[in-house]
Design a protein around this nucleic acid. Structure first.
Length: 581
DNA sequence: ATGACGTTGGAGCG
DNA sequence: CGCTCCAACGTCAT
């Protein structure tokens, strides 16, 4: 479970004299914003308890450059703060608290170590190799070594440590690149360990130091309220409207606020529907229902308010409680399957970054990503982001994203396909970046994987299977309730035209109180034409990839550039103006 | 070589 | 609803 242990000579000599030494542990929260099933936190606690007057400081660092908040929506920032507030509350319930500091972790942590005479540091490992986290953690570990602080990181972000999957696969080169293969590896990993209990008041009792508060020297910001945290810009207050479940929609169950306690509630609520859990098939869940048709625990997973092992066993328990007659689904579509996808994607991100550091999340140099000569059209990307493509189903999804920070998985498929290989032929990187900032559940590994998949850049190659921005949802939501909710301009548009409002005769538009082209945009491109043309482009890109030495790609070296006369990608496209059909 | 398969396509048909 | 076909994918088992 533990993957690193840097022991300096100073730390070693300290350990030799444990009796006379005061163990001062710090647990550094980054993700893993929970008490339950938190091996690193428990280890810190045990360390502190080993010595008389031992202490434990739970710390969160809001990066001075606001890494956590810089690229994200106010909604997402709010969610993170709510998680911290909840964590602080839970820690207070057991006699401790959370210290939140603002600044560069490599500056702020050493200052705190000094102030508090910290001897031990723990944190949850980031195994994916996300560049920011990797650089940060390496620096901090080096500092620990310098200052004689014992540091240990623990793998609890995935069901099994990614390194163990690699070993079981027979090395990095053999890491599975398909779900089926991954399931095979997973099956060899043994039983999923039971999650660890959250520490209790009793656990904390021996180490509670009433003087802690005085030692902060003005450096700590008690996270009682969102406004006490260092904001880079205007953000909603923690007590603002619930992030999910806008007030104007009565039918929507107010779902989540950030934090482990809310996460547990949400999980229990889903798991109570035992038969539903047992029969869950992801592709059959609705992406147009006004309330989520899935568990919607993903935002909690992404910041670690829930551990994957906890969720895994919760699913197992629910399935066991389902009636014997209830249909049972299986991976990859079942709920267990969803957990497998998560570990699989993390393993892939890890593998890509091991091969070429920082390559995951990018096209160039990413061993899993084919190079495709996407075009660059700022207007297209902006229209997509703003939900102004003129395709109501696409725009509705993008509006939901903006408003709630969440879209159903299949909605994500539709908009991702539309931006890339389907219609707009824009690089998936721009889309991924937008998702990363907007989605409450944005996850480095999963986001990248899904963008590769949907853009047919990796893992999925059937580019001739293309989502239609019109047809795809017509069968599920023929009246367009979902569209009417998220694109209010079309709320009076008759169902007949709701997916293709530009086809509505002028009189119909007038009655509906919307003039297409003025109150709601005309379609940004002609899907029928562009999707066909893009399939040809994709075919060319694949051919170029094959010709360009796909056999032995040198990860760090740039592959041969896309076809020289791939002029079509550059060709200026005209907005469709004549729309009568 | 060939065919089955791959978490979730669309259109047309009965 | 389920079936077939659609120009078009790559991977793996046989």
């Amino acid at each position: 479970m533990r993957i690193t242990a840097v022991l300096s000579s100073a730390a070693l000599s300290m350990m030799a004299n444990t009796k006379n030494t005061k163990n001062v542990a710090m647990h550094w929260f980054r993700k893993g914003l929970r008490l339950q099933d938190n091996p690193a936190l428990l280890h810190a606690l045990e360390t502190a308890k080993k010595s008389d007057e031992g202490r434990l400081y739970p710390v969160y660092v809001m990066d001075g450059d606001c890494y956590q908040l810089k690229h994200c929506s106010a909604l997402k920032a709010n969610f993170l703060v709510e998680c911290l507030i909840d964590l602080d509350k839970s820690l207070k319930d057991v006699g401790s608290r959370l210290y939140v500091v603002s600044g560069d972790p490599t500056k702020e942590l050493p200052a705190l170590w000094e102030d508090w005479d910290v001897t031990h540091l723990t944190f949850e490992a980031d195994e994916t190799g996300e560049p920011y986290a990797k650089a940060r953690d390496e620096s901090v570990m080096n500092l620990c070594e310098e200052k004689g602080i014992e540091v240990e990181s623990f793998c609890s972000e995935t069901i099994f440590p990614l390194g163990d999957y690699v070993k079981k696969s027979g090395g990095l080169a053999k890491v599975p690149a398909t779900m089926g293969k991954f399931q095979g590896i997973f099956g060899k990993m043994g039983k999923v360990p039971k999650p660890l209990n959250a520490p209790t008041k009793e656990d904390f009792k021996p180490i509670i130091d009433k003087e802690q508060a005085k030692e902060t020297k003005g450096k700590m910001l008690p996270p009682k309220r969102a406004t006490d945290l260092p904001w880079p810009r205007d953000t909603p207050k923690a007590d603002a409207t619930p992030i999910w479940g806008p007030k104007d929609c009565k039918n929507l169950t107010p779902i989540t606020r950030g934090g482990e306690s809310k996460a547990q509630e949400s999980l229990s609520k889903s798991m109570a529907k035992a038969a539903w859990v047992a029969g869950f098939e992801k592709p059959k869940t609705s992406c147009t229902s006004l309330a989520p048709s899935t568990t919607s625990i993903s935002p909690y997973m992404s910041v670690g308010c829930l551990s994957p092992r906890t969720v895994w066993h919760a699913i197992s328990n629910a399935v066991a409680q389902a009636p014997a007659s209830a249909p049972k689904s299986k991976p990859p579509v079942s709920l267990h399957g969803q957990m497998l996808w998560r570990d699989f994607n993390n393993l892939i991100a890890h593998s890509a970054n091991q091969d070429n550091p920082g390559s995951w999340g990018k096209m160039e140099g990413n061993k899993y990503c084919r190079e495709v000569p996407w075009s660059e059209n700022e207007r297209f990307l902006t229209a997509w982001k703003n939900g102004e493509t003129g395709y109501p189903w696409i725009d509705a999804c993008m509006k939901q994203l903006e408003t709630e920070g969440w879209i159903h998985h299949l909605g994500r498929h539709a908009v991702a396909c539309f931006l890339t290989r389907g219609d707009l032929w824009q690089s998936w990187e721009g889309g991924a970046l937008h998702f990363e900032g907007q989605l409450l559940d944005a996850d480095y590994a999963l986001n990248g994987f899904n963008w590769l998949w949907l853009s047919c850049s990796g893992f999925f190659y059937q580019y001739f299977r293309c989502y239609s921005p019109v047809a795809f949802q017509k069968k599920n939501d023929p009246h367009g309730h979902y569209i009417k909710k998220w694109v209010p301009a079309l709320k009076n548009m008759p169902a007949k035209y709701i997916y293709e409002p530009w086809k509505a005769p002028a009189s119909v538009q007038q009655t509906a109180g919307v003039k297409i082209g003025k109150d709601y945009p005309l379609p940004i491109v002609d899907h029928a034409l562009e999707s066909k043309e893009n399939m040809n482009r994709m075919k060319e890109a694949y051919a170029a990839y094959k010709a360009g030495g796909s056999k032995a790609p040198s990860p760090t070296k740039k592959k041969t550039p896309p076809p020289k006369e791939a002029a079509p990608a550059k060709k200026k496209r005209k907005v469709q103006q004549t729309l009568k059909l």
